[in-house]
Amino acid sequence: MSFPLDGVSLDAPLLDGPRLRPKAGGAADSLVVLLHGYGADGRDLIDLGNAWADLLPHAAFVSPHAPEPCGQAPVGRQWFPLTFRDPHELPRGAQAAAPLLRAFLDVELAKLALPPERLALVGFSQGAMMALKVGLAEDLRPAAVVAFSGMWVDASAPHPAPVSNPPPVLLLHGEDDEVIPAQALFGSAKALAAAGVPVEWHLSPGLGHGIDDAELAIAGSFLAQSLGGRSHGAR
C-alpha cells in the first residue's frame, strides 16, 4: 500500500487547516494529525489537541480540511464522495484520496524537521478510514493510528495482504453508532490482526456516532504511550 507522490497533480488543492502549537512552547517533538469526518471540516477535531495538551505538551496538532466540498453538506468537506450505493466506493475512494493526504503529511513533517516515527494519525468516521489507509502504508510507518467510529476499508478484501512493519492501532466505536454500525469495529480488528497489525479496541456502551470522554481518555493515553519520550533528540 504505497502512494507515489508523483501521482499528485500540480493542480491539486493543497490541504490546510487549523493548528495548535505545543503547549510547552518551543519546537515540536511530535505531530498529531487530526482527520475529520464526512461533511465536517478541520475545525471539527482541532479541539482534541487542547484535550490532549497536558498528555502531549511537546506535540503540535493540525487538522486539515478535506480536499473536496461535501456533496451532501454544502458547508462541509469530504475526503471522497459517498453514494451509499456502491459497495466498492470506500476502498476506491480512500485509495484515490491517499496521495494528497500523504503529500500533506510529508510537507508538515518537513516543516517541523520530524521523521515519520514522530507522527500520529487520528481520524473520525471517514477520516478514520483515511488514517488507517495512509497510516498502514508500507513506506510511512507512523508512531500510531487512532480511529474513532470508522473502519479499515481494506478489511473487505477476501484475504488482506500482510502489513509490513505496521504501527500500533487503536479502534474506538460507539455501541449504538447509527452511521457506521459497531460491527465494523470487530470486522476491522479481526482483519487488522490477521494482517499482522498490533491492534487494540474499545466499544463505548450507549454511544452513537461520536466521541465521549472515556474514549478521549483512552486515546490520549494511547498517544502518549506511543509518542512517549523525546526520542527525536533534544531540540
Rank of each mutant, 00 (worst) to 15 (best):
D86S: 10
L14K: 12
L90A: 15
A59M: 05
A94T: 14
L48K: 01
D54H: 07
G233A: 09
P67E: 15
N165F: 14
L90C: 05
D212Q: 06
P18R: 08
G7Y: 03
A161P: 00
W79N: 03
V75D: 02
F80Y: 15
A120N: 06
A214M: 06
I46Y: 02
R85S: 13
A24T: 05
G123V: 03
S30Y: 09
G39C: 10
A191P: 12
A66K: 00
H202P: 07
A191N: 11
L5Q: 09
F186Q: 05
P13N: 05
S221F: 12
S164H: 14
L20N: 00
A195P: 09
L5A: 08
W52N: 11
P91I: 10
L207K: 04
F124R: 01
A147M: 03
R43S: 10
M130P: 05
A51N: 01
D212E: 07
P87M: 09
A128G: 15
G206W: 12
M151T: 11
P69L: 15
D6V: 10
D6Q: 13
D106I: 04
H209G: 05
V32M: 05
S125N: 06
D44K: 00
L31P: 09
G93V: 06
I218H: 00
M129Y: 07
G71V: 00
A66T: 02
S2E: 13
D106P: 00
P74M: 06
Q225I: 07
W152L: 05
A161C: 01
N165T: 09
L31M: 13
H202F: 14
F61D: 02
P67K: 08
F148K: 01
P158S: 02
L136G: 10
D16M: 05
P158I: 02
G39P: 05
D44T: 00
L192A: 09
R230Y: 14
L100R: 15
A217E: 15
P181C: 04
A128M: 03
L227M: 13
P67Q: 11
V32P: 06
A98C: 12
A224G: 13
S63G: 11
A12R: 04
G7E: 13
L132G: 08
L170R: 02
